[in-house]
Design a protein around this nucleic acid. Structure first.
Length: 516
RNA sequence: GGCGGAGUAGCUCAGUUGGUUAGAGCAGGGGAAUCAUAAUCCUCGUGUCGGGGGUUCGAAUCCCUCCUCCGCUACCA
């Protein structure tokens, strides 16, 4: 099943409003999913929402509705975001769905059967105000002996019965797994962190709670609900039909090729999750990629600062494909990045409107005017012609290699190298001059350019589906001839094919007039 | 404190089996062209490759040391 590709986003916690971070993670997956589909893979692209937990329970109570009705409502925000961003997920898992409860309870049973889970009691310093536990080292002890959390909240020692997962027993096997799969965690620097963490020793993990009800009941012990990550992480196998593993999607798609996550939740995916899976007798995923965070004009983003970036607003201001392009172009994927208004405009105008859009526009306009609005008929190719065409033909290898390690920015750089070369070729060949002096040569030049642009547009489809489709429309490339098997000279544009009237695809951004 | 990563042109970065004059994009200066979304193309850098020391015929690239910045150092989704 080597032509299957299964990738996932984290499931997003419904208590949060969708922000640029959510959009970014899913966008990266979407581009990869689209790329793999174009490249001949049968893709399963999963996203979803995490709808359990105490905070949700409380938020629902505060809103005066039951938790299910509450999550139905807020979960919709994430589906709306996906719609707006043109995300192409194949499935959307909600942890409140029956299929997920079934999967979560089944993995639990497997773990119990294998002796990986035991009942004990969980104790620790708990701050009621923060709804969080703190470790001894995080606390400050006052003169009267009272302990306080870093937030200043008073903490108390609490104990409750809890089931534990024997994570401590998995250190060696995890280390072996990392060693055998050096690309399991990317980027490399994140891998180092995980290795360092694991080599420091692992403690057993509390995997159930009794203090609230909104979650998946522990099989055979309704007093407990499954806690946090065991519930949430299991969504990745819910999505492929677990517990049915012999047939169907699980057999077809598991282990997942990629879990895309933000760097803050790497540990859960790179340590706990493979341990859970191996302990349950299932294969761990092939890769976890931890990407970075965005800042806003150099400032850390936080609710309290009020500088949260709303992806819907960005799309409204700059356009969907422009935003998709910027997010994956501005930053080496994996690094933190800064969203700056001016940087967005520079990319949008400089690279999309000027470099790419204008290349298509100038070529298509000349073709429309000088070639009867049809694909020109080329003569024999010169060295310059072949050089440009070969650059376009060779692009897929570079891009594919980059995509396979989630180097989205590298792929775009490679594509833009050819775009710049194409603009240089236009100036060097000066087809507007040839129009008066040598119509045949002009036809060849415009043909070479059209064919180059066809390749560029095919390759940018994953990033900018709508804009790329419009360029391909203008080249009269049939919709069923837009996958990567149509790259190359064998599927070159047919001379004489009628072309529609060209129109701009990437408008320049104009600052709105400021009121005096 | 421990472990790890980073410090290369004004900005963002590329550059490891050590080897000719260290690269790209953007910004800035100059020029060309006028097909095109006033878009494009060409051209211009005396950069201590963080400092110091060492290995080597030769180091941004290896070793030592120092400085600065950042990440991780468990149960928060």
């Amino acid at each position: 099943m080597s032509n299957r590709y299964y990738l996932t986003t984290p499931i997003y916690y419904v208590n949060d409003a969708p922000h640029i971070g959510h959009a970014y993670t899913t966008l990266a997956c979407d581009v990869l999913a689209r790329f793999k589909r174009l490249d001949g893979f049968i893709v399963k692209f999963l996203t979803g929402t995490d709808e359990h937990g105490q905070k949700v329970e409380k938020s629902a109570a505060a809103a005066g509705i039951d938790p299910k009705a509450f999550t139905d409502k807020v979960s919709q925000n994430f589906r709306d975001l996906a719609e707006t961003m043109n995300f192409s997920h194949d499935d959307f898992v909600r942890t409140t769905e029956d299929r997920h409860k079934l999967a979560a309870q089944e993995i639990w049973k497997r773990l119990v059967e294998r002796g990986e889970i035991y009942l004990d009691s969980y104790s620790g310093w708990y701050a009621v105000r923060d709804e969080a536990f703190y470790t001894e080292g995080e606390l400050t002890t006052g003169p009267d002996g009272t302990k306080t959390a870093p937030s200043g909240a008073e903490v108390e020692w609490v104990e409750e019965p809890s089931y534990f997962f024997r994570l401590s027993a998995w250190q060696d096997r995890l280390e072996k797994f990392y060693e055998d799969h050096p690309d399991f965690i990317l980027p490399k620097t994140r891998r180092n962190e995980v290795l360092s963490f694991v080599s420091g020793g692992l403690q057993d993990l509390s995997v159930s709670r009794t203090t609230f009800k909104w979650g998946v009941p522990v099989p055979g012990d309704d007093a407990h609900i499954m806690y946090v990550w065991l519930d949430a992480l299991t969504n990745y196998i819910t999505g492929v039909g677990f517990p049915e593993i012999e047939t169907g999607e699980f057999a077809e798609f598991w282990p997942a090729n990629l879990h895309m996550v933000g760097k803050d939740i790497l540990r859960f995916h790179a340590v706990y999750w493979p341990a859970f899976l191996m302990a349950a007798g299932l294969e761990p995923p092939k890769r976890v990629f931890a990407h970075g965070w965005w800042t806003n004009e150099g400032e850390k983003i936080s609710k309290s600062l009020g500088n949260v970036i709303d992806p819907l607003e960005l799309v409204e201001t700059f356009g969907l494909d422009q935003v998709r392009y910027f997010l994956l172009r501005e930053v080496p994927f994996g690094n933190d990045g800064d969203f700056a208004h001016q940087a967005m405009i520079n990319r949008m105008n400089g690279e999309l409107a000027n470099d790419y859009g204008n290349l298509a526009q100038r070529v298509l306009s000349m073709t429309a005017k000088n070639c009867d609005g049809a694909v020109p008929k080329p003569g024999s190719f010169t060295g310059a012609d072949d050089a440009l065409l070969n650059a376009a033909y060779g692009l897929i290898d570079t891009v594919r290699e980059a995509m396979d390690v989630q180097a989205f920015h590298t792929a775009l750089e490679a594509i833009w190298t050819v775009i710049r070369a194409a603009n240089g070729y236009v100036d060097a060949q000066a087809p507007w001059k040839l129009a008066k002096e040598d119509q045949e040569r002009m036809a060849t030049v415009l043909y070479v350019l059209a064919e180059t642009i066809r390749h560029l547009a095919l390759l940018t489809q994953a990033y900018m589906p709508d804009a790329s489709a419009r360029i391909l429309d203008q080249l009269a490339v049939p919709e069923d001839a837009r996958t990567f098997e149509f790259l190359g000279a064998n599927h070159a544009l047919e001379p004489g094919t009628a072309l529609p009237k060209p129109e701009g695809v990437f408008p320049r951004y104009q600052e709105p007039e400021k009121e005096a």
